[in-house]
Amino acid sequence: MKGHQRKKLLKQNMKGYLFVSPWILNLAFFTIIPIIVSAFLSFTKYDMVNPPRWIGFMNYYIMFKLDPSFWKALGNTLYYMFGSVFMKVFLALVLAVLLNNVAKGMGMYRTIFFLPVVLPAVPVMFLWMMLFSPNGLINRFLALFGINGPLWLSSVTWSKPALIIMSLWGIGGIIVILLAGLQDVPKSIYEAAQLDGANSVQIFWRITVPMVSPIILFCIVTGLISASQVFTEAYIMTGGGPLESTTFVSLKIYLLAFKQGNMGYASAMAWLMFLLMVPLTILVFRIFRRWSPID
């Protein structure tokens, strides 16, 4: 009996490994090995030309003792991450639920919301620079309500909010994922709730959100990941300024590695970032496990 069980277990394990084997190969060669290499590099001086030279904890010492700009960049990144991710997911969820309730024209709306995701990044960013310009469309709109709009991208206080507002435009991707998830929710559950006299807001929070919570979790986690690596916007639109207010960690790492040829130090920075981000992910997963009925 026991042997039989063990055999069954073994078979089950083998089946699992077989299914994920392509990924194990991928992970090992294209991710784990490079990550280990980068961990090694973080203890070296590596100028991207000569072989890396071991310097112990020197890069980390410099980061903590001599480089205040890293902490500033980290603060900027966290600000952007939390600002953009939760607003994005919430707005996307609202729009997805509205779309899910629309009988006619759903396809058209969905395509329109997805447009900014499809368009090449550079033209879209160029457009945003125009919209954010002091007499651009956004400030003209605010002026209708008597609000004197800020300088947005050239203001130290408003540059990050401007980038967050811009990121909201890219929610098309999340809407699509959420919609695909929402369509899995059986209509009967909604009908039952309506019969019980629940109003729309209650249905939204008590039924819709928990039913698609694995998808929301996915959106939040991948959102946090991509926001933690926010790069192109700052690189192209602000160059990290004004006064380093949009210098995010990834921009800093990129400049260090590719513009200054200091890959060792860049790797150390990436590793510290990684070590700070992992507990955050675990926390997000924990919160969801408590909340979601499925995961």
């Binding site: 990924w23 992970l27 991710t31 784990i32 090995i33 490079p34 990550i35 290499v37 980068s38 590099l41 991207m48 986690v221 991948t222 990941i225 933690s228 690596q229 790069f231 960690v249 990834s250 790492i253 990129y254 590695a257 590719f258 890959m263 860049a266 790797s267 920075m269 990436a270 590793w271 970032m273 990684f274 981000m277 992992v278 992910t281």
Partner: peptide, 16 residues
Amino acid sequence: VTIATMFIPGQVLIIP
């Protein structure tokens, strides 16, 4: 591990 690897800023993996 799969999820965690996504958090490493990609720029430092390009070279390896």
